[in-house]
Design a binder for these strands. Structure first.
Lengths: 198, 198
DNA sequence: CTTTTTATATGATCATTATCATATAATGAT
DNA sequence: ATCATTATATGATAATGATCATATAAAAAG
């Protein structure tokens, strides 16, 4: 049928959004083309009208995940001065809420061990996303020179993503909560934030 | 045939060792039973004489990975005094050598996003391994009380595993090297180690 | 009103993979 | 020597999943 202009693009966006959520939740390889299409209210056959291959979908989904990351970054930091924005970002990222919602969370924490097994398009999208996030974090740091800011941002990103990934991996909830709390505290300290409330 | 006593156990050990390597490299779900058996010089059919299911093999493989972790920990720290052992452990863990050999490296860095999708036996094995590793790290820390040592160990483990996982995930080798170097530096600093050489 | 267009549907194919029933071969026990 | 044992092999089954050829339906263009 001759749907109205832009219908195809809207459908594609919907499919990518669903794929981005499902892939963070279950891993890219555990999400089937037919399942994603089904969730979008479509059947599997139409898939190849939108994407060259499943790899292509994975790459689009990774891009989408990092777009969502940037939106969350803004949500958590907009309208706050630098230290407050940083504190807010750390607390929101290294949180139980984030841990419990991988499907809408950061791609780095969700795909940490999956992405290196993916195709080059997905990996490029991932690299772009990581760089973008590093820049965002560095922009919140008050260090003198840019090199130090970048170094600190990289180290903090490692701890943030490592903590959330580990907190998800561990089955014991007490241990999981502990890991998050320890990382949060350490991150605030080394970001130069004085401890206020808990 | 009536093989000599202990043949079965030796075979099983060999299979688990191979599975542990392959699963760290490719992810548990990407490693087939037939492939592992083939690498052990066997055919797929005999598998169920050794394991109840693939889940069972995954759990055994996870246990094995952490045994290897403990052996590496000893290798890197034995015969050194506490600060030197800690420095050695950090430098060896957060290294390009470790990054480039997931198949023989730490399970936490290798399976960070895979393990939460596995069965309960594998997850229990993982929890045991994480706790054991946390104790090992805490034993290297010179903090006053045990709580602080545990907190710091958790935070450091998050950064170490996060850095190695991220360094593997990223395609750009320059960025990957940078992430490792940044994490290494930060970890040594917050572990209270003075900077000596590079 | 007919034709063309195009997003989506149907249905098939081919590959992969976990699992299991059954067979085999070699060797200690009889 | 024959038998019983047992680790491993053969071969089948059933499920899943990516891909693709082809069909269809509905609206826009004529």
């Amino acid at each position: 049928m001759r749907y109205d202009e832009g219908h195809s693009e809207k459908t594609k966006n919907r499919v990518v959004k669903i794929a981005a959520a499902q892939m963070r939740k279950h891993g890219p390889d555990k999400v089937g083309v037919a399942d994603v299409m089904g969730r979008a209210g479509l059947t599997h056959g139409g898939f190849y009208a939108h994407f060259d291959s499943k790899d292509d979908l994975i790459a689009a989904a990774v891009d989408r995940m990092f777009e969502e990351s940037r939106a969350r970054f803004r949500e958590w930091t907009d309208g706050k001065d630098r230290p407050e924005a940083l504190r807010s970002y750390i607390n929101a990222y290294v949180s139980r809420a984030h841990r419990d919602k991988p499907e809408s969370g950061c791609a780095i924490a969700a795909l940490s061990s999956d992405i290196r097994r993916q195709g080059s398009k997905a990996r490029s999208a991932y690299d772009r996303g990581v760089n973008s996030l590093l820049n965002s974090i560095a922009s919140l740091l008050g260090e003198e020179d840019g090199v130090k800011r970048r170094t600190l941002a990289q180290s903090m990103l490692a701890e943030m993503t490592g903590a959330v990934a580990a907190a998800r991996a561990v089955a014991d909830e007490t241990l999981s909560d502990e890991i998050l709390a320890s990382a949060r505290r350490s991150l605030r300290a080394r970001a130069g934030l004085a401890e206020l409330q808990k």
